[in-house]
C-alpha cells in the first residue's frame, strides 16, 4: 500500500510536472504568436510623404532603376503632383519633385487606373480649396493619399 501510495504520489508528481510543462509551452507559443503578429504589423510602417533629391527629370528611369521588377506593370505617379510646380510656383524644386521619394507605382490594370483617377480628383479638390499652400501642406496631403491608396501601390507604401 505504502509502496502503491508512494507510486501514486510519484505518478501524480509526474503528471503535475507534465501539466506545468504543457502550460509553459502554451504560454511560450502564445507569446511567440504575439511577437510575430507585432513584427508583421511593424513591417508596414506609416512613413509620411517626403521629398528627396534627384539629378535628373527622367523620373520614370529613376523609379524603374529602383524598382526594376515593376517595369511594364505600373504607371509612375508623382505623390505631390507635377502641376504643383505651376500652381504654387517656387514651393517645390524640380530636384525634389522628381526624386524617388516622391514617386509611386500605380498598377496599370483598370483598377489601378480608376484609383489613379480618384487620386487626381482628390488633388483637384485640394487645388480648389487651397489658393495658397506650403510645402508641408502638400506633403501632408500626399501622406493622406498614401494612407488611403498606398496598400494598392507597387511597391506598396502602406
Amino acid at each position: 500500500m505504502a509502496s502503491g501510495g508512494g507510486g501514486g504520489g510519484a505518478k501524480g508528481k509526474i503528471l503535475r510536472i507534465a501539466l506545468q510543462f504543457l502550460k509553459k509551452a502554451r504560454r511560450r507559443a502564445a507569446q511567440s504568436a504575439r511577437t510575430a503578429s507585432t513584427s508583421a504589423r511593424r513591417t508596414v510602417t506609416r512613413t509620411p510623404a517626403r521629398f528627396g533629391s534627384s539629378t535628373t527629370t527622367n523620373y520614370r528611369q529613376t523609379f524603374f532603376n529602383a524598382n526594376p521588377s515593376a517595369r511594364g506593370q505600373v504607371v509612375v505617379h508623382h505623390a505631390v503632383e507635377r502641376q504643383t510646380l505651376r500652381r504654387y510656383p517656387g514651393l517645390v524644386s524640380q530636384s525634389e519633385m522628381h526624386s524617388l521619394e516622391n514617386l509611386r507605382g500605380i498598377p496599370n490594370g483598370i483598377n489601378g487606373r480608376v484609383h489613379l483617377s480618384q487620386i487626381r480628383r482628390e488633388w483637384n479638390q485640394f487645388y480648389a480649396a487651397n489658393p495658397t499652400a506650403t510645402q508641408r501642406q502638400l506633403l501632408d496631403f500626399a501622406t493622406k493619399i498614401d494612407d488611403k491608396f498606398g496598400h494598392l501601390f507597387l511597391p506598396p507604401v502602406r
Binding site: Q83, R86, R120, R121, P131
Partner: peptide, 19 residues
C-alpha cells in the same frame, strides 16, 4: 465634378495670384 483626366500642362499661362 467631371473626370480629372490630367493636369494643367507646362504650356498653360495663368495668374495664380488670384483665386
Amino acid at each position: 465634378e467631371p473626370e480629372v483626366a490630367g493636369e494643367l500642362g507646362e504650356g498653360t499661362d495663368m495668374d495664380t495670384s488670384v483665386h
